[in-house]
Design a binder for these strands. Structure first.
Lengths: 190, 190
DNA sequence: CTCGTTGATGAGACCAAGTCTCGTCACCGT
DNA sequence: ACGGTGACGAGACTTGGTCTCATCAACGAG
């Protein structure tokens, strides 16, 4: 038998989502989250840098996936095709487990300005990573920024719709569809 | 003679920018900022909700200006023309005083992840306010979001170039120019 | 002129986030 | 058998942020 129960990190994430949803993010203390996970405050901060990050850990992975996908697109691909490749590659992050947690996470984040702030920061990182990957492909500056912005917007819109159980399409299909709509709106803009 | 020196709020802003720039944002305590302004920590928090906001106060005004400008555009205006009107209207916020503080502010914000987080949040608010104003004009959803995103990107790019003293064009001219470039990139996107 | 009100501030207690140091002890390789 | 490793607990400590209460110049009513 192990000295400590395994998956301390996962237990912390679950405890945090549960408590934040039950009684609210602001009134929940880190000590409470740690206690529900069978740990202490000090250990919480060994796994996460702050009280917010426990909800967003794993999203650095999204940046990596988007950048990898864009970089791996064939040489002749247009910027938009590279963004599509990035979204396809990011599909790897969207497991059924994520789908189950999505709505609860969205609700909790929506309830707190502090959490929305972190979400905005993560989104900015996503856009920066994707724009960087496009620039490394030789896409010139204003185009790379616009394409990355559309890609990240599609990424988030698709995630929102993916969480609605009424829509049974795969995340990849939803992302392609959102990107197509955004691109159409952009080219038609006057 | 007044009981208190006037402009407590402004003194706090100046003290904060100075100290954050001199010795770094993270190692500066709110008590130090208040002391340099001739006040106490409690009074700091009467003027600003937290340690970060002292650098961003006044930016809610930007959302208001953008929304007002977009709402005031003539009835027949296209979405892009409404965004242009919004940027023109926001010109009111860019005084010579702002121009002098801009580069220092940018440097301080760039030095701290916590401050970049707040900046990303403010940007998201700007985009949401502009998109809302466009939707109220009857612009349908994906188009409003894309136009707002381009507008906010132009807003920030113009502010960056406006801070470079090498470029003597007015903020309004710079913003129109940036928006034009971004729009061109968007319509040419493949 | 006097007096009560107003409102910005100071003083300081208080809580929680986040940091840091030190001690513990199962596990693992030698 | 034994020393090293690493995840964890305990608890002190700093600082961001909140709250309550006291202070006192300005101001207006009488």
């Amino acid at each position: 038998m192990a000295r400590w129960e395994p998956d301390a990190r996962l237990r912390l994430v679950r405890a945090a989502i549960d408590l934040y949803a039950e009684q609210g993010y602001e009134v929940t203390t880190v000590a409470q989250v740690a206690e529900r996970a069978g740990l202490t405050k000090a250990t919480f901060f060994r796994h996460f840098p702050d009280k917010r990050e426990v909800l967003f850990a794993g999203q650095e992975h999204h940046s990596t996936l988007l950048a990898e996908g864009a970089a791996a697109a064939p040489d002749g691909a247009t910027p938009l095709e590279a963004v599509t490749a990035a979204l396809d590659h990011a599909t790897a992050a969207f497991t059924p487990e994520q789908r189950a947690w999505g709505p609860r996470l969205r609700a909790v984040v929506a309830s707190s300005a502090e959490l929305q702030e972190r979400a905005a920061f993560k989104r900015a990182h996503l856009a920066a990573a994707l724009a960087d990957a496009l620039r490394r492909r030789g896409v010139p500056d204003p185009t790379a920024a616009v394409a990355a912005e559309l890609g990240v917007e599609a990424f988030h819109r698709a995630f929102d719709r993916w969480g609605d159980t009424t829509d049974d399409r795969s995340y990849g299909d939803l992302a392609r569809s959102e990107l197509h709509d955004l691109h159409a709106a952009a080219t038609a803009l006057r």
